[in-house]
């Protein structure tokens, strides 16, 4: 039995015993928290980013640089949607999924490669009148199943980080993670640019019809080798197919997730998992009992990282 299933079983049994509300069963383990003797990476707040691709937007972002980073060796990269603002004054600051501590611990243990984390918020349009709230561009950037967000990362953000840090451009060395609309966004980035990103983590991903993202299962099914000839019928498209089939996908959802006019989140994620299985991709799907939040995904995150990075030392 895989570590995932064991952890999952352990957690669900615990829940039955304690009869806690369904999300409270998902707690952070020791790999998600600071440990004595483990070198702590740097959390660096970046100046708000003014995008050209998403013209007029401003966003918060920050990066994590592991203590083991060596400027002579290109580091792996992992991008997180909904990154928020870094609280550099708080020595306990962990970021989404407590990734700062997970990275510290796993890199130190040699269980994942030296990886720079890029935590970035969706853009917003500041109001001209400072008294008014900014308008969020999150749904446009994350829910739209097209190449725009991947271009934003590849043409604006990665080059900016690369000014200071040496990043590997091997697609196997680039991962992307998000929750909800940030989850489908992670998949979209790899789907659109499989030569740039080949590792995806989606928690409670919105593979529903907010802006057409419910179309992925059938598109993934068409990448099954026996079914792909009609769709990928030129040398260029065959290269895209080959590249897409190398994407590794981790999906998490909960049976208590959203059921609304855009779709049913648990069903949509099961449909994604069934499509990935059908097409023969390298994927993991964990369906828990949680609702629409990141607790389960965060509790799994150290194991997710071990599985995701298992081919990179």
């Amino acid at each position: 039995m895989k570590p995932f299933s064991l952890l999952f079983l352990a957690l669900t049994s615990l829940a039955t015993l304690t009869a806690a509300p369904q999300d409270d069963q998902y707690v952070l383990g020791p790999d998600s928290l600071p440990k004595e003797g483990v070198p702590h990476g740097k959390v660096i707040a970046m100046d708000p980013w003014r995008s050209k691709i998403f013209d007029g937007t401003v966003r918060d972002w920050w990066i994590y640089v592991p203590a083991q980073y060596d400027a002579s060796k290109p580091a792996c990269t992992m991008v997180f949607q909904d990154g928020g603002k870094a609280n550099v004054k708080d020595s306990k600051f962990g970021g989404s999924n407590n990734a700062v501590w997970v990275f510290d611990n796993l890199i130190h243990a040699g269980q994942m490669p030296v990886t720079i984390g890029i935590f970035i918020s969706p853009g917003s349009f500041p109001a001209a009148d400072a008294k008014e709230k900014p308008r969020s561009n999150r749904s446009f950037e994350y829910d739209t199943p097209d190449a725009l967000y991947s271009r934003f990362l590849l043409e604006e953000i990665l080059p900016e980080v690369s000014k200071t840090y040496k990043l590997s451009d091997n697609p196997e060395h680039r991962a992307i993670c998000g929750a909800s609309s940030g989850g489908i966004c992670a998949f979209t980035v790899a789907w659109e640019k499989p030569d740039a990103f080949r590792k995806v983590v989606s928690h409670i991903g919105s593979f529903t019809n907010i802006r057409g993202g419910y179309g992925y299962p059938s598109k993934i099914r068409q990448t099954k080798l026996e079914n792909s000839l009609q769709t990928y019928n030129t040398p260029e498209l065959k290269a895209v197919l080959e590249s897409r089939r190398k994407i590794r996908v981790f999906l998490q959802d909960g049976t208590g997730d959203i059921d609304n006019q855009f779709g049913n989140w648990p069903l949509a994620n099961q449909d994604m998992a069934a499509a990935l299985k059908f097409a023969g991709w390298d994927y993991q799907f964990v369906l828990g009992e949680g609702t629409h939040n990141g607790k389960h995904g965060a509790s799994l995150f150290p194991d997710t990282m071990r599985w995701l990075w298992r081919d990179v030392k």
Binding site: L28, D90, K92, N97, N260, Q261
Partner: peptide
């Protein structure tokens, strides 16, 4: 000792949930 971190995660989740609450709030009904 990691209460801060946990609260921060919960806070981020609360924001995510709030966004979704808005989404759910938009049905024709």
């Amino acid at each position: 000792m990691h209460i801060h971190t946990i609260f921060r995660v919960l806070f981020i989740l609360a924001i995510l949930s709030k966004n979704q609450a808005i989404a759910q709030d938009t049905s024709l009904h």
